[in-house]
């Protein structure tokens, strides 16, 4: 493990520094948005958004290579699809409550299927595994800059509307009576979750995003007395699991995403066993 922390500063292994910095910056967004995912109980929606993103990645690759639309990179495709799917799912969950789970389930699979088809029709071989299970050790400076920009965006909007987000999670009817446009803030929250999901793709991959958005905040909810402390614990737990998971995966030469998730899950199970006061 110590070798990992020495190699972070090795100029020949700059990818390790990028991976660590992405993990650090992304942990802030994971901690904040993860808290809202847990208290609003929208992990199923976050899962659907993350799987729809594969459709955006596929579309980005296809348009970039086949139609030579240079600005349409897989990353831009992922961001656009994340926002689009958040808006679509938000609309469905507000106006089609009766069939909410079925619709979300259908979108979940639809987005992924579209992505796989477009990747298949894109010339050249692309291994979808790196998107599905993460590839934090393959990231570059561009990825780091994207994560920093998205992080600033998520943090700024959350700080500005924090009280409104908490109120719609706790008592939506009361918030509405206070003149707050609860539908707007619900959809804004989903868009921020979607942006956070884009950051998570490199770290843990599409398949395990839900775990990273719920496990650190699930542990934090047992330790916390209020929502602000839940967010702080959640950020700290995310930081610990991402950095330690990276170090372990580097040491044992294993994919970083699954190692981070296994580490988080173990801490979560220990928290359930030893902190039973509040079962979640």
């Amino acid at each position: 493990m110590i070798q990992f922390f020495i190699d972070i500063f090795n100029p020949d292994m700059v990818f390790l520094m990028y991976a660590t910095l992405i993990g650090i910056f992304a942990s802030f967004a994971f901690g904040i948005m993860g808290t809202f995912v847990v208290i609003k109980r929208v992990s199923f929606i976050a899962g659907a958004i993350s799987h729809c993103i594969l459709g955006g990645i596929g579309l980005g690759m296809y348009l970039n290579k086949v139609h030579e639309i240079t600005w349409m990179t897989p990353q831009i495709g992922a961001i656009l699809m994340a926002i689009f799917s958040a808006l679509l799912i938000g609309y469905f969950t507000i106006y089609y409550k009766e069939r909410e789970d079925t619709l979300i389930g259908a979108l979940w699979a639809f987005g992924m299927a579209i992505g796989l088809i477009l990747i298949y029709y894109t010339p050249g071989y692309t291994d979808p595994m790196s998107y599905l299970f993460g590839s934090i050790l393959m990231v570059g400076l561009e990825d780091l800059i994207t994560v920093i920009i998205l992080d600033i965006l998520v943090l700024t909007i959350t700080i500005l509307f924090f009280n409104k987000f908490v109120s719609i999670c706790f008592d939506e009817e009361f918030a509405r009576l206070r003149g707050i446009n609860t539908r707007f803030y619900y959809i804004l929250l989903l868009v921020l979750i979607a942006i956070t999901v884009v950051m998570l793709i490199n770290v843990v991959g599409i398949v395990m995003i839900v775990a990273m958005l719920t496990i650190p905040s699930g542990i934090a909810s047992v330790l916390s007395k209020n929502i602000k402390s839940m967010i702080i614990y959640s950020i700290l737990i995310s930081l610990f699991t991402v950095i330690t998971g990276l170090a372990i995966s580097y040491e044992i030469n294993a994919p970083s995403g699954p190692v981070i998730i296994i580490l988080s899950s173990i801490i979560y199970f220990i928290a359930i066993v030893f902190l039973r006061k509040r079962i979640f």
Binding site: I39, R41, N163, K164, V166, S167, C169, F170, D171, E173, F174, A175, R178, G179, I180, S221, S224, K225, N226, I227, S229, M230, R278, F280
Partner: peptide, 22 residues
């Protein structure tokens, strides 16, 4: 009936402060 998630870690003061929303 207040429909809320009892597992949300929220203090009495935080609940009362919501009255200042808007």
């Amino acid at each position: 009936h207040l429909v809320f998630d009892p597992q949300i870690p929220i203090t009495v003061e935080e609940v009362v402060l919501m009255g200042c929303l808007g």
